[in-house]
Nucleic acid binder design. Structure first.
Lengths: 152, 152
DNA sequence: TGTGAAACTGACATCGC
DNA sequence: GCGATGTCAGTTTCACA
């Protein structure tokens, strides 16, 4: 973690919300010239603080209206179980995040699917590739907040 | 949900990964002229399938290395409890997502914080504004997969 | 850091396919 | 629909003061 000054913070806050803003507009918001902004952004990209610029899509309009969390418990202490699990989840489309959580062996998967049938397809795909003893799925009924902006 | 053809899917797949690519480079990847790509992107923005372009930041390098899931159960059937809850979570920085889940009244919060002390600050902020009977927190030890790209 | 000028890219319009 | 071409404004990029 590097040190970031106030102006960089301001720039990052803007870029998190909309990365398609002209340098001059950003400069106006943070009180810097277009060029100063450009240099700072370049530096932030070089240090890896800015990872990428991505288009955020509407999952619902693309037919992926169902979000599901899968909570996985395993009693396997097999050293390469996690490797298999990681590789499987990495390659299955629709799986967005996989986390190893606190509490011994406990994994959380966040995935987007079209519907229940699609979820079952994903589930079958997963258990075909990894031995899973305990899987519980919870479905998202409503997204009350969805704001990827980190507080700076 | 509108119908999307194969070329639009290809364009969206590219844009999900990197939205800072010149139109010509995208055209090369999908087999279209810069102009055709431009027309399609405009249409995808107009229909709202492309929501925004955002810079993705490295949370760890910004001192927000701890991700936490808070699972909330409430027995309150108060009609405006959810309103209070929604408003509170909406305004507390660090809270990225709030979901209402299947299973009667069950909410899931995903948040990024600096450390345990910071989590406690967020927790205190939340319970000060909303009556919560049951809150369980799970912390992310390892991000095994983090890929926001939707399968198209 | 700011300024300026060059190079590039985006944002269209037009035409023919 | 698409591609090719052209034009123009806006933007990025990089010299240098």
């Amino acid at each position: 973690m590097e040190t970031i000054d106030t102006l960089d913070r301001k720039i990052l806050t803007v870029l998190q919300r909309s990365a398609d803003m002209p340098l001059e507009a950003i400069g106006d918001q943070v009180g810097l010239s277009r060029n100063a902004v450009w240099r700072r952004i370049k530096a932030l990209e070089a240090t890896g603080i800015i990872r990428a610029r991505r288009a955020e899509l509407d999952a619902g309009k693309l037919g992926l209206g169902l979000m599901v969390f899968m909570q996985i418990r395993t009693h396997s202490h097999d050293p390469d179980w996690q490797g298999t699990f990681a590789k499987a989840t990495q390659t299955i489309p629709g799986i967005l995040n996989v986390y190893r959580m606190t509490g011994d062996l406990d994994y959380l998967i966040r995935a987007r699917v079209a519907d229940m049938a699609d979820y079952d397809r994903l589930y079958q795909q997963l258990i075909k590739r990894v031995p899973l003893s305990d899987v519980a799925a919870s479905f998202v009924m409503e997204e009350i907040k969805d704001d990827p902006v980190l507080p700076l």
